[in-house]
Computed example of a mutant assay.
Amino acid sequence: MTHVLVSGGTGFVGRFIVEHLMASGYDVVVGGRTPPASAFFSKPVAFAPLALDPDIDQSASFRGVDHFVHAAFQHVAGRYRGGEGDDPEGFRRSNLDGSVRLFRTAREHGVKRCVFLSSRAVYGDQPRGAELFEDTPCHPESLYGALKLEAENALAALATDAFKAVSLRVTGVYGAAGTGAAHKWQPLFDDYLSGREIAPRAGTEVHGDDVAAAVRLVLESPSDRLQGSLFNVSDILVDNRAILAMVQDITGSKHRLPAPATLTAFNTMNTEKIWTLGWQSGGLERLKSTVASLLA
């Protein structure tokens, strides 16, 4: 059985990755600061101490591990961009230096593949409406995006024939949150159902399980099919009017929907590379079914 260590496995995206890999037959170890609660996952899962600290030797957590998926990120609660708060140096030390130390430790202990969850934020400022490819020049506008890009580059520099390194540039992720947590659209739903005015906003989204499927494909695909070390992971461009129109249909609410956002100005991510590995995203139908389940 293949052993996969997932850092940040109890996070919003990490939880999808852990569940998907377990369902696909992998032996998963969750790495983090504290063990998950007993009922956090659908079945018991092993735990290994793991921290974003460049000064700690965490070799013990990598013994017997075949693959490492790095989904951990330290930030102010509820914020990624701007997640440094008033401590940008600490933010850099944890999320860049701490990540690179984990990458090096993984390579030193014979890990075969390392998958880093990067972000759409690496692209930063781009011409209006331009499509984003993996080789599009990056101009990150936030410290979050800049550190994700630096971590990508550091991981790529460590790659060898024996240590395959891949970064997935993931867009906004949606789906059900873990036990006791609110999903990302809960404030939006609450505002609409309370009749509050909502400003138009658009974004690209992908379901958490579709992200997990991309991770699995990168772990399973032959090395010669992993052209380059970068893959965009995105699904659907949608504005909050379209999302709330689904809410309106399901609930029968009579509140006014926000105005449509200007979708033509948005920079969508080209996902042809990840599709060549056999990836399939849920599209509009998955979005509709998820909104219905979140409301239920």
Rank of each mutant, 00 (worst) to 15 (best):
D190S: 07
W185S: 07
V173K: 00
A181I: 13
D191Y: 00
P187T: 05
F189Q: 01
G178H: 05
T179W: 06
F163D: 00
A162E: 15
L188N: 02
T171C: 11
V173A: 05
S167Y: 01
K184V: 10
G175M: 09
K164W: 05
V173T: 08
V166D: 00
T179N: 12
G172T: 14
G178A: 14
A162Q: 14
A177P: 09
G178Y: 06
G175Y: 06
G172M: 12
P187S: 07
T160P: 02
Y174S: 03
H183K: 14
A177L: 13
R169M: 12
L168D: 00
G178D: 04
A162K: 14
Q186A: 10
T160H: 06
G180C: 13
K164H: 10
V166I: 15
V166N: 01
A177E: 10
V166F: 00
G175R: 03
Q186M: 12
D190H: 07
K164M: 09
L188Q: 02
R169H: 06
V166K: 00
T179L: 12
A165F: 01
K184N: 14
T171A: 07
T179E: 11
Q186D: 07
D190F: 03
D191R: 08
G178W: 08
V166R: 00
D161N: 11
W185K: 02
H183T: 12
F163A: 05
K164D: 13
K164T: 13
A181F: 14
A162V: 09
G178N: 09
V173P: 00
A176C: 12
S167L: 04
W185I: 08
A159V: 07
G178K: 06
K184Q: 13
P187K: 08
G180W: 12
T171F: 04
Y174F: 12
A177N: 06
G172H: 15
G175D: 08
D161W: 10
A176E: 15
P187A: 07
F163E: 00
D190T: 13
F189M: 05
